[in-house]
Design a protein around this nucleic acid. Structure first.
Lengths: 254, 254
DNA sequence: GTGCCTATATTGTCGGACAATTCGACGATC
DNA sequence: GATCGTCGAATTGTCCGACAATATAGGCAC
């Protein structure tokens, strides 16, 4: 261990030297107010004209800043309303952004599966711990929907919902946010798998039933181990379907 | 628990009926081209004037669409260049957006910790499987940095890097993306923990050394179990420090 | 080729304008 | 008293045109 493990991380030392445009400074100014909680969700933003006056810029400039914030999910409109309000970036939107990033990165099935393998069992355990009878009933309803769904597409949709609901039941928003994009990206592959492996669907059902049972009776350990098996099944089904594990998941058509 | 589980999912029945503005349609049009890979990273976008002509709208309208795409990380500028190019949404940026979402959602320490508990052990195992000697050396260098760092802030920074490097070594981009925001949000709490629990830092070091060793000798199981212990330690340290587990992680000042 | 210089193209911002909607208040109706 | 039209004002989405600053590209000397 002499010292030259050295420049572990390059120091940028010189930034690209970019004067910030006015619109950018405006959007960051507003963003800061939101992050610092001076502006709280539900609050209405001043009108474009007012903002333009306050910042002493043209309205077009304000508008560009607003589009940026809008795209970041920090502001938005409710209903057909005209005025912009502060919103917290919805999980759905953030999740879809994560999904997009991963899809454009050409992540492979195996990467997604590994993530699922890590996250899903613990999620199930927590769901068993924190779930209420009502939510357990919903979960069961979803499994029933998986069974009775006509068409692979619908079935896959319900499977995705199963995991989503489970994450919700865990009461852990981090896990929810992690699970969502993974499942959404996994869905198309899952669909193909179900198409090609006839017994795939019943195996899924059996495992999910067991998980539901464990959740309802509040047995985290069982939920966790069943989920582990469930996830393993996914992979086996994939291999049976003869799909390469390093298949890239395509860009989601959203 | 009186009302039956009832409507599994509320059907909105009627959408808010929103006419899309021209700028929105423009941004989605371009977005589609990117997601469909007609436009590939590095490609230059036409100039604003050209786009305005092609879409038959005014340049201001195009600009708003571009700001939106820019904020989504789908287009951007390299260096001091003037022209916009297609970029893939960087992991760093996406991760920071996820962190922001979670922070604004007031996630608690325990939620983050649960996520870490789920993800980190498998990540360590995969790192042991896929890591190269070179990357293992880097990892070791980071642990050394943790040891020799003056000041809690610096130490915590290196701890975060430790997990980041581990995720990188796992070769799994999904796990990388999951780990990054979690660790960044955990950092402030970790800092306080280290401040208050004197033996915390050495315990971290011991665990990390063991993990490094397991990774270097390519023993996934050991890496996984050591990491599990390591994560448990975090929590214990937190409890020792007398910090409530449901403490909300504040909004990161970025 | 390298380096400098100029002309052109492009972006960021501005001022102003206008149609289409939404908002908000004000009576009219049951 | 609450709900329902109505109507003017406010607000947004889009457009037009303009201009300074600056990247880019072409040309010219070395």
């Amino acid at each position: 261990m002499s010292e030259p493990p050295a420049p572990v991380y390059k120091a940028p030392l010189f930034e690209p030297l970019t004067r910030q445009s006015a619109s950018l400074r405006i959007s960051t100014a507003i963003e800061q107010k939101i992050l610092r909680r001076s502006l709280r969700p539900g609050d209405a933003l001043p009108t474009e004209t007012e903002l333009a006056e306050q910042f002493a810029v043209h309205r077009s400039t304000v508008r560009e800043a607003l589009r940026r914030l809008e795209s970041a999910g920090l502001v938005g409109r409710e209903g057909g309303s005209k005025k912009l309000r502060i919103t917290r970036p919805g999980h759905a939107e953030t999740a879809s952004r994560v999904g997009r990033t991963l899809a454009l990165d050409d992540v492979t099935f195996i990467e997604l599966w590994e993530a699922m393998r890590a996250v899903a069992p613990r999620t199930a355990a927590l769901a068993a711990q924190h779930g209420t009878p009502a939510s357990a009933a919903t979960l069961e309803a979803i499994v029933n929907a998986v069974e009775t769904a006509r068409g692979a597409d619908a079935a896959v949709g319900w499977v995705v919902d199963f995991f989503g609901k489970l994450a919700e039941m865990s009461g852990n928003r981090v896990l929810m946010l992690a699970m969502q994009p993974v499942m959404r990206l996994l869905a198309p592959s899952l669909r193909r798998m179900i198409d090609r492996v006839p017994q795939g669907r019943t195996r899924i059902l059996v495992a999910q039933r067991c998980i539901v049972e464990a959740v309802r009776t509040a047995r985290p350990d069982e939920a966790e181990s069943w989920m582990t098996r469930h996830v393993q099944d996914f992979r086996r089904g994939y291999e049976l379907a003869g799909i390469a594990l390093d298949t890239r998941v395509g860009a989601t058509p959203d």
